[in-house]
Design a protein around this nucleic acid. Structure first.
Lengths: 116, 116
DNA sequence: CTCGTAGTACGGTGAGTATCGTACGAAGCA
DNA sequence: TGCTTCGTACGATACTCACCGTACTACGAG
């Protein structure tokens, strides 16, 4: 059934199961916010191992799971890799403008704190 | 100095000390999000006791402190009451559109879940 | 000065979570 | 059939946090 990129299936919330509080909580962690920003820039899917986070593999797995279970990203297995993509359409339908303003806010803050 | 509504002064982060992650974390709690929504509707200052939260006074104090220390609200003493107001200007300057899209998202979610 | 109201401070509890290390599983390659 | 890479599962730890109750302070009214 479905599309079958692989055997292993991952549990994702349906669009109407996504909760604002969970999304905000997922984005309130600096490491996860950074992941989301890079996914937004990449305009496509990135594997978990693409990200060079300053934590161990198990902690990385944990953060990606929080993002997936809150409905922020979609994860699929592709061979040994696990690809991650932003759920832009679902988020835009539920919370128009929210993701973009968070991404913009993060970019502004980074410019403010590090850049000139 | 300053304006002197009372003796007791409360510590607030300066505008440039406000962090996006802290704001998102503050807003990710259902009770605090509800408080912020009511403050936004009220278009002014509301006392802590205006809110009839389903928790004790000490927990209420805790939530208002999280909102204040994250930079979402400003609190001043007025007699025995403590008035709360959204820091709209500061938030709009730092993160344009963020507060509005969160408020809009919260309203949409409420309509989706409870209303028709 | 006394009393009531509004809110704080403090200590504690239980749940969640960010982190790690080690051991394991799944897919691809030689 | 191994070996390697990518990621998971599980257990442990330390920290944060939402919540409570009790005792307390600050202000205003009588």
């Amino acid at each position: 059934m479905t599309t079958a990129t692989s055997s292993r299936e991952l549990a994702h919330p349906e669009r109407d199961e996504i909760r604002l509080e969970a999304v905000l909580h997922a984005l309130s962690d600096p490491m996860r916010l950074q992941v989301v920003r890079e996914l937004a820039e990449a305009q496509g899917e990135l594997s978990c191992s693409y990200f060079d986070l300053p934590v161990t593999k198990s902690t990385t797995t944990h953060h990606f799971r929080v993002l997936r279970e809150s409905g922020v990203i979609r994860q699929v297995y592709r061979g040994t890799a696990k690809m991650n993509g932003l759920r832009r359409e679902d988020l835009a339908a539920l919370f128009p403008g929210l993701l973009d303003s968070v991404l913009d806010a993060a970019a502004r803050q980074e410019r403010r704190l590090t850049g000139s």
